[in-house]
Design a binder for these strands. Structure first.
Lengths: 411, 411
DNA sequence: CCCATATAGTTCAGGGCATAAACTAAATGG
DNA sequence: CCATTTAGTTTATGCCCTGAACTATATGGG
């Protein structure tokens, strides 16, 4: 036989092919309808049949599998004074959850997120991670995770997976943090087993801004399927949601707004470049421009941030113009990003949200100058996400994976 | 019954659901294997079975449908001295094609592209489109299309669809050109029927840079699944290919590099902004900076471009530094775009490709200054695409649609 | 010339899955 | 207490892939 050229990629694609794959897809479809139910809304098999375009018979059979897998539970009999046999409500099993974790510069955190995306419990542990080694930090996180796992067990919760968000670039496939300058990490492989309970649980590794973007998505209108989340932390990160999905780019590093060039003749950046957004609107840059000196360690940074806010409240220079300058630059970067991504909603998180009062006027003015045609329809929001945002977003993504591939749990 | 909340989006998604959808997917899978065959390579049913992971029985049945639909033909008996029953080669039917069209500032063009993506015939008609009304231009294009349709008929070619590329923003869904400043078009609905033969043929409308990016993709290595195509025409457009697919963004306008802000305090741009890349590296900007005055009409532009090249050949100022300045700015924009998209390959087309000799040094230097960490691994290429690029890319995309949904033609 | 061998492609029984229609279950209301 | 209404299950049917048996058509050696 002639060599059938290795170029044919078709075989590797995971298109249906098998009749059994129809069932996989339909399990996911039924589950997605159940998951789409609102807070105090319960769909019955009959509802699901209508919403999913499947027949009642199929839905019954599919639901039976989901019940057996423990992904879904029947919840009482729903009676509301109407005629006919009462329907049986179906909801995502509230006793299944995913453990979300975050390592940031000043703290580590972990929490339990159920299949509806709700944070059931969490713990935030302040920690000067920059002045510790990676293995020390990971050991502390492992301990924190163990504690939460024990709490989950006590509540009768089963943990189906885990996720970790870190402030840096990651290789999700290999569970490797490629670089996290703000943590002082170079390249760090993760021992997933040390962070999670045994078993065949799913684990994912995220960039902090991407995870936050996913968390932000849950807070937005369902209509809002496209937005850019800009996270002002020690560095400036970004997470892009396109068509209601995270757009991470070929290697997972898309959305990084911090090194967009704002001032071609500007200051040198830690990335080796020149005039990056981070050199003007990064936390260190703002503090420096506000006359609050260089940051030595995380404790002193917290203090200086306090001082910055005090100065802003009073209206003292150069703090006010430092932030205004940051807003102006942020506006330029956002203008370019909105053009390149074709996105009209941008959500600001982290210190940008905290600085909104002083940042927004300059930001909006800058956007009007540099992109008047999109400034009018631009929606600029500030995120209410706190320190649990990233871990919730990361966990929620794993929940999404589980809900999209229920057949893996139905066996 | 309780109102089953309209929020459930699941029903609208086109997941399998039906056993019949397995067949649709498998028809596409088989066809994709056949399409993946190289120039003088022919897969047999047995080869396809192996490559597609389907059984010989299934492949035979699927191939029978594709043959009946006329998408595929059997081509002789392949004999090469080996034992066993000879295999029957299967190839995409060379007598099926799509008509690709382009409207640009200085010309209109149309061509026939077969299912393998090959340009079978084409015609380019120089025309000063800027100084004509949209309906005049469209009438001329309709005429050109008719001529090619007649030629196709004469050769026994059947036309399965069409595509049009224009230098401007489009609303693909509505077949509307939203704005094409370089054509002088404001908002223009297209009469698709006037451009295409009757029947239920598929039609798509593209931005020129996006279409060119699709054409460029065919020229690249199969491995190269992610790149940004930057098209230097009268304006500066961009087309982004991510994971071997066009990434057009929520409204189809992603990738537009022309209005990335390069010089915050720079010149006013036609978009209403300030300091956009186009104000420095656009065709008019380069000509002006080279001392070749403002462009009045397209004829004089062609002349001035000639003059520019003459000046560059000799090395005359200010032409050389005008182009170098453009290269520098282009480098800044590309650095930001590479960061935001997480792409490491950029292909330059249009006048950027023609100016490579004078543009590249400044571009590379600029990239090294502003993004040294990615400059090393960056691949900067120049595109050999000519005036047929956009029409071929647009047509090829329609071919791709047809090959991905063969069941529509199998009836 | 004939038959073993090898490969391509087809036929056919079997099983998984969704569908439609008939059927059972469990409520309301007069 | 029974007609009515809605929920959910059972059953016969057909589609589609699979695997194995089978047919078709070549090569090559005796």
């Amino acid at each position: 036989m002639r060599q059938p050229a290795s170029s044919a990629r078709a075989a590797s694609s995971s298109a249906p092919g098998n009749v059994g794959d129809v069932r996989k897809a339909n399990l996911a479809r039924v589950l997605s309808v159940i998951a789409a139910a609102g807070e105090d809304q319960r769909f019955s098999r009959a509802d699901i049949a209508q919403l999913s375009q499947l027949t009642k018979a199929s839905v019954s059979s599919l639901v039976a599998d989901l019940l057996a897998a423990g992904l879904v539970i029947e919840i009482g009999v729903h009676r509301d004074g109407e005629r006919g046999r009462p329907s049986v409500g179906l909801i995502l099993n509230p006793a299944r959850c995913v453990i979300g974790m975050e390592i940031n510069v000043d703290y580590i955190a972990a929490g339990l997120v159920d299949l509806s995306g709700k944070l059931l419990a969490h713990e935030i542990l302040p920690r000067a991670n920059h002045s510790a080694t990676a293995s020390e930090v990971l050991a502390a996180l492992g301990e924190l995770s163990q504690r939460l796992q024990a709490a989950a067990l006590a509540q009768g919760l089963m943990i189906l997976g885990g996720a970790l968000a870190v402030p840096g670039l990651v290789d999700e496939e290999r569970y490797t943090v490629l670089q996290a300058p703000n943590l002082g990490w170079e390249r760090q492989d993760l021992d997933v087993a040390a962070l999670l309970p045994g078993g065949r649980t799913r684990f994912r590794l995220f960039n902090e801004a991407n995870a936050s973007a996913l968390a932000q998505q849950q807070l937005m209108d369902v209509q809002e399927r496209d937005f850019l989340f800009v996270s002002g932390e020690v560095g400036i990160g970004g997470g892009l949601i396109i068509d209601a999905e995270l757009f991470a780019g070929p290697r997972g590093h898309a959305g990084e707004l911090g090194h967009v060039v704002i001032a071609p003749e500007g200051r040198a950046c830690s990335c080796g470049g020149r005039g990056c957004l981070e050199t003007i609107a990064g936390q260190e840059a703002i503090l420096a421009a506000a006359g609050l000196g260089a940051v030595v360690d995380s404790a002193s940074r917290q203090q200086r941030i306090q001082q910055l806010f005090q100065a802003l409240e009073i209206g003292t220079e150069p703090a006010v113009s430092a932030v205004a300058e940051a807003g102006k630059s942020l506006g330029i970067a956002v203008a370019s990003a909105m053009r390149l991504y074709d996105v009209s909603t941008v959500v600001f998180g982290g210190h940008f949200a905290a600085l909104e009062l002083w940042l927004r006027p300059a930001l909006e003015a800058s956007l009007r100058v540099h992109a008047p045609s999109i400034a009018g329809q631009a929606r600029l929001l500030c995120s209410p996400l706190g320190q649990t945002g990233a871990l919730v977003g990361a966990a929620r993504s794993v929940v999404g994976d589980l809900l999209e591939a229920p057949h893996l749990l139905v066996e």
